Computed example of a mutant assay.
Amino acid sequence: MKTYSLKFVQNIPISIDEAWDFFSSPLNLEKITPNDMKFEVTSDYTPQTKMYAGMIITYKVTPLFGIKLDWMTEITHVQDKKYFVDEQRFGPYALWHHQHHFKEIEGGVEMTDLLHYAIPYGVIGRLSNTLLVKKKVKQIFDYRVKAVENLFGKY
């Protein structure tokens, strides 16, 4: 199985407390995901709910071709105001391991996402990654950069 790795870094002009408060709330993910994905957290959480190791989050998402999918992730690791990791437990990927790192920098926070993923179906999966999936994942993170800038300003 071919595994792919992507890294995204964004500086945000807010405090580490503000960054952690926003990004550690599962419901805020909807605010930074492209509208065409029709992303919806289906877990019964409130805006005050913060991530913890072992937390299960369920979603509905429409990633490609208008096909609605169920997705479930588990928050496997959390270090307050430093990082958290989500891993797919059920969904479209053969592997999804997403690290979210936060570091205080002068004038704000550096947020780094490290993503490792794999597509099922062997050669067909590798071809679909080349033609569709990698571009879609990058598009989602590009959208997120703009959404975060709209919410918190540009660094």
Rank of each mutant, 00 (worst) to 15 (best):
K2R: 11
K2G: 05
T3R: 12
L6D: 03
I12Q: 13
P13L: 07
P13M: 11
I16Y: 05
W20K: 07
F22T: 14
S25F: 00
L27D: 00
L29P: 01
D36L: 07
M37P: 00
E40M: 02
Q48N: 14
K50F: 10
Y52G: 14
Y52D: 13
A53Y: 01
G54T: 03
I57T: 08
Y59T: 07
P63W: 02
F65A: 13
F65N: 10
G66T: 08
I67F: 12
D70G: 12
E74F: 01
E74A: 04
I75H: 09
H77E: 15
V78F: 11
V78Y: 10
Y83H: 15
Y83S: 14
Y83L: 15
D86T: 08
F90D: 11
G91N: 09
G91Q: 08
G91D: 08
Y93A: 07
H97Q: 06
H97S: 04
H98P: 10
Q99G: 11
E106K: 13
G108E: 10
G108M: 08
G108H: 02
V109G: 13
E110K: 03
M111L: 12
T112D: 10
D113E: 06
Y117T: 04
N129D: 15
N129K: 09
K136C: 00
Q139H: 10
F141Q: 01
F141W: 02
Y143Q: 09
E149V: 08
N150S: 12
L151F: 03
L151Y: 01
Y155I: 11
Y155M: 11
